[in-house]
Simulated assay, not measured.
Amino acid sequence: MESDISLLVGDIAARRLVEGSKQLVKWHVQQTTNLALNVAEYFTEEKPAIARSQNISAFCGDVGDLRDAMDRLENRVASLESRPLKV
């Protein structure tokens, strides 16, 4: 690409245009990344509309623990119901 541009504007100018274009693209990508990170931080910290992955993992673990505890409780109740009542 640089050689094609050099036919129009010369070697030095073509080199600077290509390097400037690369830097512009790099800057644009960095700014887009920064914007995405800032928006994500805003929605997780300032206005918690999005849950963090750590919080979701902890919640899922708690739900699993609760399910296991409920299974144990149901089994215990079932075993108590099957025993004869002593008066």
Rank of each mutant, 00 (worst) to 15 (best):
R67V: 13
I56Y: 03
L73A: 15
S6G: 05
G20T: 05
Q23V: 03
N38V: 06
R15S: 08
I56T: 11
E74F: 07
D4L: 10
R15I: 00
V63M: 13
D71H: 06
M70S: 12
A14C: 07
R15Q: 08
L37E: 15
K47S: 10
A13W: 01
R83C: 04
P84E: 14
I5T: 05
A36G: 04
R15W: 01
L85Q: 08
E45D: 14
R15M: 03
A40F: 01
N34I: 10
R72T: 09
A69W: 01
L73Q: 15
I5W: 00
W27F: 11
M70V: 15
A40Q: 08
V29W: 01
L80F: 07
D62S: 14
D62G: 10
R72E: 14
Q30M: 12
Q54W: 01
I50K: 04
L80G: 02
S82W: 01
A49F: 07
E19H: 02
G64F: 02
E46T: 15
V18S: 04
D65S: 12
S82I: 03
P48V: 13
G61H: 06
K47E: 13
R83N: 05
D71F: 02
L73H: 12
L8I: 11
M1E: 06
V87C: 05
C60W: 01
L80A: 13
T33I: 08
S6H: 05
V77F: 09
N55V: 01
A69S: 10
A40S: 09
P84A: 14
A69T: 06
A78Q: 14
T32S: 13
A58C: 02
E45M: 07
A58G: 01
P84D: 13
K47C: 07
Q31P: 00
E74H: 10
G10H: 07
D62R: 13
L37A: 12
N75M: 12
K22P: 00
D11N: 06
R83Q: 13
D68V: 01
G61I: 00
E19I: 03
V77N: 12
H28F: 03
Q31M: 11
L66E: 14
L37Y: 08
Q31I: 06
T32W: 03
P48L: 08
D4M: 08
D68W: 00
G20Q: 08
E74T: 14
K22H: 14
K22C: 13
S79Q: 13
I5Q: 02
V39G: 03
G10M: 07
L17R: 03
A49K: 08
C60S: 11
R76L: 14
V63Y: 05
K86D: 04
D71E: 12
A51W: 04
V29R: 11
T32G: 09
I56C: 04
V18H: 04
L17C: 05
R67L: 15
E46N: 15
R52M: 04
L66N: 11
A36F: 05
L24K: 07
S79L: 07
L17Y: 02
